[in-house]
């Protein structure tokens, strides 16, 4: 289990990285960016990924930050997940993103793995996918033509594929601050704690005059990409919270899914059913938080 040979580059600035990527692209070199490498390294070791060249962003020191800018939390792509986990700013102002971070892998993975790496890798079971969809996050990429901002619903294209071009680097992700009086919940079902989720759900909502409003439901781990489920949101919007309506939303969510992924841990039907349960439970938990 040793990687196939590759060339290695460690640019020290973003500009160098972009220029390098463009050069490699022009030379038809299959280059792959490595950030923390916690998803890429197993694939290299297994020779499932065999790029001609690796471009390591580890020496670029300008992409490691978590800040509040106007109504937005901005996170540098090379910020470690551990830093996000330990961030009181994130905990206080964007608790959904914070909570989801704690579910990612194990501590050693979060120590080395980066926030940006998880977004860019686009694993269907990645917690951040659902968070991005639920919060309407924005991804900032920089390429030869400058900066581009991609909204979450255009960012994830399919299984392990994003809208980031081969010559572009993801530099920052942006999430709105969680408005006051917003309830949220994040739950997933894994075989073991820290495993990739068989299914997971993120929910935000508000209570207005005793009714649910601005309900957002996003799911991950079940289809090629995480997605919002407006069909399920509609069931709850404008309704008084309650077990029956939440269960109904869960059923609507399950019904709205594309044919789910099947693997040794979970059949498609089981995943669908987990979504029904998780949506129901997350709605209840989110309502609790509104109070």
């Amino acid at each position: 289990m040793k990687p196939a040979p590759f060339d290695y580059y460690a640019p020290e600035t973003l500009e160098q990285a972009v220029a390098l990527l463009e050069k490699l692209e022009n030379e038809d070199v299959d280059a792959k960016i490595i950030a923390g490498g916690q998803s890429l390294m197993p694939m290299l070791n297994l020779r499932m990924a065999r790029p001609d060249a690796l471009v390591d962003l580890g020496k670029i020191k300008t992409l490691d930050y978590i800040r509040q800018e106007n109504g937005t939390i901005v996170i540098g792509a090379m910020t470690s997940k551990r830093a996000a986990e330990d961030s009181t700013l994130l905990r206080d102002r964007q608790p959904l993103l914070h909570a989801a971070t704690g579910h990612i892998g194990h501590r050693q993975i979060r120590n080395q793995g980066t926030v940006g790496g998880s977004f860019a890798h686009a694993d269907p079971a990645a917690e951040y996918g659902a968070v991005a969809q639920a919060l309407g996050m924005e991804m900032v990429v920089v390429g030869p033509d400058g900066e581009r901002i991609i909204p979450a619903d255009e960012f994830y294209l399919s299984f392990l594929t994003t809208d980031i071009d081969a010559t572009e680097v993801l530099t920052e992700v942006r999430a709105p601050i969680m408005p006051d009086n917003t309830g949220w919940a994040f739950q997933e079902v894994c075989r073991r704690k820290g495993d990739l989720a068989m299914a997971g759900t993120a929910v935000t909502l508000r209570l207005e005059a005793g009714s649910c409003a601005e309900v957002v439901i996003a799911v991950f781990g079940v289809n090629a990409t995480a997605a919002r489920l407006p069909e399920a949101e509609q069931v709850v919007n404008g309704q008084a919270p309650g077990e029956a309506i939440f269960a109904q939303a869960g059923e609507a969510a399950a019904a709205a899914l594309d044919e789910p992924i099947a693997d040794v841990h979970a059949t498609a039907d089981y995943r669908r059913s987990l979504i029904a349960t998780l949506v129901k439970r997350c709605l209840a938990e989110a309502v609790e938080r509104c109070a």
């Binding site: 075989r191 704690k193 693997d263 040794v264």
Partner: peptide, 16 residues
């Protein structure tokens, strides 16, 4: 065989 990784053959961890 569909199991060739420790992410699929699940040894119980400290929580389990």
């Amino acid at each position: 065989p569909l199991v060739s990784l420790f992410s699929d053959y699940l040894l119980p961890g400290i929580h389990e």
